[in-house]
Design a protein around this nucleic acid. Structure first.
Lengths: 217, 217
DNA sequence: GCTAAGATATTGTTCAACAATTCTCAATAG
DNA sequence: CTATTGAGAATTGTTGAACAATATCTTAGC
């Protein structure tokens, strides 16, 4: 057995959460879930710890674990941190190695290919890879890890987005523009464009969240 | 009891580690520690997970957990992230609220008072507060949390520093200069000064680590 | 001195029982 | 009718034990 039971259970729960089967705010009862999955409470708790580390769920003492709720304040904060890390990457681009710079271009290429094929889910993945590649230009393992956690949190918020197509389409062109600016060494302009880019994306998401909020009235 | 057993155990271990009672590289035996602290292995492992999340200890599969060893590559990476977060704070200074800006000045004041009193340990604490206040200008809870983790990691490396006095003295003046630049709205100059400041500090620490490395030959 | 097989010790995983805490909900006082 | 309180139910926290998997140490043989 190369994968522990707890890991497999965590995989199942991760799928259910990201698939929408377990909506944000849901309480994950140890007894009910354990009986459902045929495992002991202790093993389930071990699985919870893995998901807590991914910040997919949160743990409240003596109250249990709940599927993470990402509210507008969280999304705003996530974009603040992204701006800091991705801008730092852009400013480090001049001194970054060739492989790191190529990863940026490769992500944009992938997004355009996926868009041409109409695979908008893959466009979304490529977009995440693009932004991760920007931050990775710093060459910092800690920044890479931080970006991964931020992206995992964002995925939860994306559940509220009505259409991946409509959300990602306008950014395809801007991704390409950013990549070109970097290739041309226009780091200052790339940074200011990236800043407004992130502000625009944040506003789109916040708008979608607010609309969805209105529905529950 | 408002704190879980695991949390209290984690607190005890954190103190022992930061106090030097458990030097970097020490293996934390589950059975021995559990017997020593009067808790079960399961609870101790829960405490370990909290410390792992703070990156005070590391876990190696089937080998147990060890007090974190911070090597030169780690220190370099930590300073890369600090540069990204603190510079982001400086650039957000214009839009930051009055309390956040006052915290920066207050930290510099505190450091100077402590230096005048000859309390160099307190100078070190005030210096950390100063840099945390810089990053906090972004107004981001996630950035605050990240800075706390980075500082905790750095404290482990500081154990290798021979003299807090010699290390901190030259930066007292530069802290004041930075705070003044911020008060005067000279954000561009503040950022470039901060960048060279962090580079200098990194070099000092790396030098000290290398010296200490030489001693163990 | 070095290698390999076996013995020992430690961590990984799972379980079931008990303790401590929170939650539910009806009864009561205002 | 609302707010409070308290007993009981439901849920999580903690423990100790057992067994499996892995690493480390010991020893025999070359």
């Amino acid at each position: 057995m190369t994968l522990s039971t707890a890991q497999r259970v965590a995989d199942v729960l991760r799928e259910r959460i990201e698939g929408g089967g377990l909506p944000p705010g849901t309480r994950l009862s140890e007894e009910a879930l354990g009986r459902d999955l045929g495992i002991s409470r202790n093993t389930l708790r071990e699985a919870f710890r893995l998901l807590i580390h991914e910040s997919l769920v949160v743990h409240r003492l003596n109250r249990g674990v709940f599927v993470r709720v990402v509210d507008p304040a969280d999304v705003t904060d996530i974009y603040r941190v992204r701006a800091a890390l991705e801008c730092a990457g852009v400013r480090a681009a001049a001194g970054a190695g060739q492989p790191l710079r190529e990863a940026v271009t490769a992500a944009v290429d992938g997004a355009e290919r996926a868009a041409a094929a109409g695979d908008w889910q893959e466009v979304g993945s490529a977009d995440l890879r693009f932004h991760r590649a920007l931050a990775a230009l710093s060459g910092s393992p800690r920044i890479d890890a931080a970006m991964d956690r931020l992206m995992a949190e964002l995925r939860l918020a994306f559940h509220a987005m009505p259409s991946a197509h409509r959300f990602h389409e306008p950014f395809l062109e801007r991704n390409r523009a950013l990549a070109t600016l970097l290739e041309d060494g226009e780091y200052g302009r790339a940074e200011s464009e990236l800043t407004t880019y992130l502000d625009d994306a944040l506003e789109l998401i916040l708008g979608a969240l607010q609309e969805r909020e209105g529905e529950n009235a």
